[in-house]
Amino acid sequence: MKHRVIYPRPLKKGDQVCVIDPANAFTEEGIRNARAFLEGNGFQVVISEDMAFKRGTAEERADRLNGVLRNRDNRAVLCMWGGYGTIPLLDKIDYEALRTNRPVFSGFSDITAIHMAIQDKTGLVSFHGPALYSPKRPVTPDAQRQFIDMVTEPWKRKELSNLNGEPFRIVRSGTTQGRLAGGNMTIVSRLMGTPYEIDTKGRILFLEEVGEKPYRLHGMLYQLKLAGKFDDAAGVIIGGLTGCDDEGRPGSGEEAVRTILEDTDIPVICNVRAGHLSDPLTLPLGAEARLEGDRVIIIGA
């Protein structure tokens, strides 16, 4: 279902932000680093330590998540990192609280499931943002600054560029406009055939992945193709394909993408560095965006 675009209340210094972990389990090191990053940017930090995946049933975890969402003092609800465990929460989330309170909501990877449900149920712009702490891929200061810029001025027009200077690469050139939708390719695939299946009609579909071989990328993309998701879409952005090349064999993650998407009739851009990376771009899912050749522009309100 399409809803009008709703922007979250912009974050400002002094605001309370709540860190949750619906797809994994907190570590003390993670808590220390997340707190240091957020407090260093002037926010009051609350850690919802009982939100971790391994603590309680889906119903219990959803109840705790809803308590966080219903608390209007929480101007942002930020996921520590990805993991596994969000899909069982989708039919239990208080989406009306999200629509009413309009917090900044950010996360990536398995959190894609919640992003997709938020877009379907509310129209609230949410952020495919970096991990608050990652020992495997420490997030760079540039990526942290871009995240803060995005959530403090969520309605502002912005043109994106990779933080490491690499260019975006065109698979199919063109100009198009639509709301951003998507996230992790595996989660998008898992939700096909459910009430939370991705709606691509008139939208720019963003997909990223980590640790999947090219043949698995090919299979997931072909599933979307057979389902007509590229026929309906306004365009496609391919984000990071981290660890998706098949070492010792011909072919790469990007080649698998090109095999499926180079004969579509819509603009397609790859190497937009968002996803499982140390320098990920933050993308405002649900916001209007425009593709112009190799340019990605967030239009804003």
Rank of each mutant, 00 (worst) to 15 (best):
A227R: 15
G275T: 07
P195W: 07
L205P: 11
L226R: 15
D246V: 00
K229C: 09
L217K: 04
T259V: 11
G219S: 13
L205V: 13
K201W: 02
I198P: 09
G253R: 05
T186K: 07
G251K: 01
M220Q: 15
D231T: 14
G211S: 13
E247M: 07
T200P: 12
L281N: 13
T194N: 05
T282G: 12
E197G: 11
Q223Y: 01
D245H: 03
S278M: 07
M220H: 12
K201C: 06
Q223T: 12
V257Y: 05
E254R: 06
L205G: 10
G248E: 00
D245E: 11
G243C: 06
G219T: 12
L224E: 11
G193T: 06
M220P: 02
P280M: 11
L207I: 15
G239T: 10
L281M: 15
D245C: 02
L207H: 09
I187K: 01
G235Q: 06
T282H: 15
L226P: 00
E262L: 04
L191V: 08
K229P: 15
G228W: 12
L226C: 10
F206C: 11
G275W: 00
A234I: 03
D246T: 01
G248Q: 00
K213S: 09
Y215G: 00
I269T: 04
